[in-house]
Design a protein around this nucleic acid. Structure first.
Lengths: 157, 157
DNA sequence: TGCTATTTGTTGCGTGTGCAACGATTGGCG
DNA sequence: CGCCAATCGTTGCACACGCAACAAATAGCA
């Protein structure tokens, strides 16, 4: 009898989570089944492919990943010989991270597939719509950061 | 030296996950700290507040939540006296679920706060932008479903 | 210099999640 | 009717995550 106060399927955080979850699981399947990578590992790989040399903390700008998550992902990648650590002699608290040749090979194999999934997703949008979407995501993300300045981790709704 | 194949901060699945994670953690804080609800529990509560009478499987349309997640959330809510189960005599495999008065009270307390968070998020968008966003999310969600027809769970990128 | 606070990264712990297997019930079809 | 497949929901298991505490190193400041 009582009219609904919230309609879940119209609730923005819920819808964002459903969409993010769908895209993530599509990608995670590739990362895992094809390359044995977790999502944190993928993020480390792609960051090192992008920046060549980074510290563990740089992997999680704004606390998108928890530092313990990064630590374990890096350990796993190092054990597989995909990433190497080098001491930073200027600040021995941190370490420089870099891809090994094997790591780079995986990066060069995964990246195109990830981009292909992204492109298949975006294929239903026009060029203008993509720009609009990007702008809207930026606005919302910025606003969300200003509201809850805590760590993110994964996310539901 | 090698140019990046993927720029993570431009990668749509990543950005979607960051945004979804930020909004989720803002909401989860309210659910948990203020009402002792997990996110699956919140979804059950809001669904029952919306539909009055549902089965456990209805809580997870399209497999947005795993059925085991729903099962445990319902058990916890029943133990707290917020939800009741009734056998469905027409099909004794499933059970009808409904909010108790206490459950409804919590629903009526949480829902406005959740909507307030949503409104604060959306406050940076114009009315037209909100409609556009909604449309874009729908298009992408539909496309994402057509690509990977598996369960969702949470989601990263 | 010396002392405290801060930062980087690791690890133990508790918890929540997905998966797969299962019991119970129902549906489909010969 | 009788049998096998499919569906609803629960639970044991393994695993990943976040949190908090921690060690090591550095920064800030008197």
């Amino acid at each position: 009898m009582p009219e609904p106060l919230v309609v879940l399927e119209d609730f923005l955080p819920y819808r964002l989570n459903v969409l993010a979850g769908l895209t993530s699981s599509a990608l995670a399947q590739i990362y895992a089944e094809r390359f044995g990578l977790s999502i944190p590992a993928w993020r480390v790989i792609v960051t090192l492919g992008q920046y060549e040399l980074r510290t563990a903390r740089d992997m999680a700008p704004d606390g998108v990943m928890h530092k313990s998550t990064v630590s374990r992902a890096v350990s796993a990648l190092e054990k597989r010989g995909l990433v190497v650590r080098r001491p930073n002699l200027d600040d021995r608290r941190e370490e420089w991270l870099a891809l090994t040749p094997e790591g780079r090979a995986i990066y060069e194999a995964v990246a195109p597939e990830a981009l292909a999934v992204e492109e298949r997703l975006l294929s239903v949008l026009t060029s203008d719509e993509r720009k609009t979407l990007s702008s809207l995501i930026d606005k919302l993300t910025q606003q969300a950061r200003s509201l809850g300045p805590r760590d993110v981790g994964e996310g539901n709704a």
